[in-house]
Nucleic acid binder design. Structure first.
Lengths: 137, 137
DNA sequence: ATAACAAATGCACTTCCATTGCACTTACTA
DNA sequence: TAGTAAGTGCAATGGAAGTGCATTTGTTAT
């Protein structure tokens, strides 16, 4: 079990207090979060810092960006072994129309999508919308 | 073959010059367009009018909204028989990373997606990104 | 230890798109 | 044809993303 510090270092990310806090925040959350969510959780920190931290995490494949169709980009921690940069590893996201939360269904891989001749598929984004398990109970 | 006027009337949309023009514009386009695209095509018209016209069309299922991940919402005319409000009729969209255009692949239905127990799927949004046939030649 | 440098942070500002309120105009209806 | 409802145009707002620059913090080499 490696510490967060070790994880960050292994990804060539300098360890700072802010980054540790943001990482922990993301780790606690089971759902994808918006920048505003993070902002509200860290009222003392500047939005720019949070923004750039997330961008750094994204570049280094610590978080991945999710576009769930709400118009606001969300972010979620990559799971161990999540190779979100590799096309074949893409998982789908579930957006709850009730609680408005977006969840990574990591174990649900996206089926191979056929595109017409001449089209080259590089990337697939699949969002299922509906009611999540918490809300459907 | 029904005229555009008849189509609009059948959907309870009052026929106006502006609406006819916007409909024709959308019909000519083979790709999904942004509000700005429409705005540029009708420099004399106000942005608000275009915006609200599109929203009206959307409510009446004449156009459907596409979120291709560029952050800018696009719109495309529903094909005849396109029941975009019905889950099983969802088609996928292809976004070209080169020319930045988004195309409805109407004939490509989205495969049935399985979600975990407790989750209720109401809607599926699938965007494939890559290179379109025009750009890959 | 500390000077020097690089990276991280905070503040202010900008841009872009979506959306709304209100006044005015156009189109249907009695 | 007058009255009313809907459509349109102008102005303004708001939210989110992104950038420039000064300041602070952390790292490295002397």
């Amino acid at each position: 079990m490696q510490t967060i510090e070790q994880l960050l270092e292994s990804k060539d990310i300098r360890v700072t207090v802010m980054r540790l806090l943001i990482y922990k925040f993301l780790a606690e959350k089971q759902v994808a979060v918006t920048l505003s969510d993070i902002e509200n959780a860290f009222e003392k920190a500047d939005r720019t810092t949070l923004y750039r931290t997330i961008k750094t995490f994204e570049e280094k494949d610590i978080v991945h960006q999710i576009d769930d169709g709400t118009g606001i980009t969300k972010y979620a921690l990559c799971e161990k072994g999540c190779n979100c940069e590799i096309e074949t590893d893409l998982h789908l996201h579930f957006h709850c129309n009730n609680c408005n939360e977006t969840i990574c269904l990591t174990e649900h891989k996206i089926p191979q999508i056929k595109v017409p001749d001449g089209f080259v598929s590089e990337n697939v984004n699949l969002v299922v919308k509906g009611i999540c398990d918490k809300c459907s109970r």
